[in-house]
């Protein structure tokens, strides 16, 4: 497990990362010592401090490898889509932008996991024949893209509570989670769908994708029946709109069941 790399990556683009994550320093080895170690470009000391904080943690490794699996899937999908030549010029800028992010996520997670990183699985993007023309039919390609992005959002969300003891890793996961949501909305809009999910509506995707949207129609949150709140009622806000306002998590097992047909 090489958690040094994940912070090093962030450090490259966000020089304040140590300060932002300073609460990690509830173990006194951090704070000023860590800042000096980073400023002084002493990566060995940095890694040593992080290893003391996180050790060889199975939860972190398991969550990050789960995330890496999904990112492998997405990255290869967009890479192959761009290679296929079917993406029209108007859609190229955001397909390329999304591909860039998914490939960066793969690199980041592999770097963080080091030797613990799983290898890239072999994928079947037809999902056992459900999407036979995924790289020759544009609408099928967009449909698979939406399926992957909406799954990714729910998958990261489901893992967040497990990362509470590891704030730096949690923050990184949240920083990926919101990017997946941006991608999802853009692809949905491209397909003529709302950017957000209404009820458990799969938005004109094939029935094979329904598991991605199941249980997303909740209007009760945190013990509050939101659609019955007085102001929500008086503003005429529908129950469907309430369900749009919250994206529900999926468990790891639910996500793996969704992803299974895409594994060769």
């Amino acid at each position: 497990m090489n958690l040094q790399n994940i912070l090093n990556e962030i450090e490259k683009v966000d020089a304040d990362v140590i300060e932002r994550l300073e609460h990690v320093s509830r173990r006194s080895v951090f704070s000023n010592f860590l800042k000096k170690a980073v400023v002084g470009a002493a990566p060995v000391a940095f890694a040593s401090v992080l290893n003391k904080a996180y050790g060889q943690n199975n939860v972190v490794g398991e969550v990050l490898n789960f995330a890496l699996t999904l990112e492998y899937l997405e990255a290869e999908f967009y890479n192959k889509s761009l290679e296929s030549g079917i993406i029209p010029g108007a859609a190229l800028p955001y397909y390329q932008q999304i591909a860039k992010h998914e490939n960066a996520h793969v690199a980041l997670l592999k770097s963080a996991l080091g030797s613990a990183a799983i290898s890239k699985p072999a994928f079947d993007f037809t999902a056992k024949g459900n999407f036979p023309d995924v790289f020759s039919n544009l609408q099928t390609n967009y449909a698979v893209a939406q399926a992957f992005e909406d799954t990714g959002v729910r998958a990261y969300k489901g893992q967040a509570p497990r990362l509470i003891p590891f704030p730096a890793v949690l923050t990184t996961a949240l920083q990926i989670h919101s990017v997946e949501a941006r991608h999802a909305a853009r692809i949905r809009y491209l397909r003529g769908q709302k950017g957000w999910i209404t009820n458990a509506d799969r938005g004109n995707l094939p029935a094979a994708t329904q598991a991605i949207y199941n249980e997303d129609e909740k209007a009760e949150q945190g013990g509050v029946n939101v659609s019955a709140l007085p102001m929500v009622v008086s503003m005429g806000i529908s129950r469907a709109a309430v369900t749009e306002a919250f994206d529900e998590p999926l468990t790891k097992e639910q996500v793996l069941a969704i992803a299974a047909p895409f594994l060769a």
Binding site: H177, R182, G222, A245
Partner: peptide, 23 residues
């Protein structure tokens, strides 16, 4: 964990808004 999940349910919707407004 419950509050973190609730925040997570909301932040992805905000990110969807951000994406569509930017579009």
């Amino acid at each position: 964990a419950d509050y973190l999940t609730l925040a997570g349910k909301i932040v992805s919707v905000e990110a969807r808004h951000a994406s569509i407004i930017a579009t």
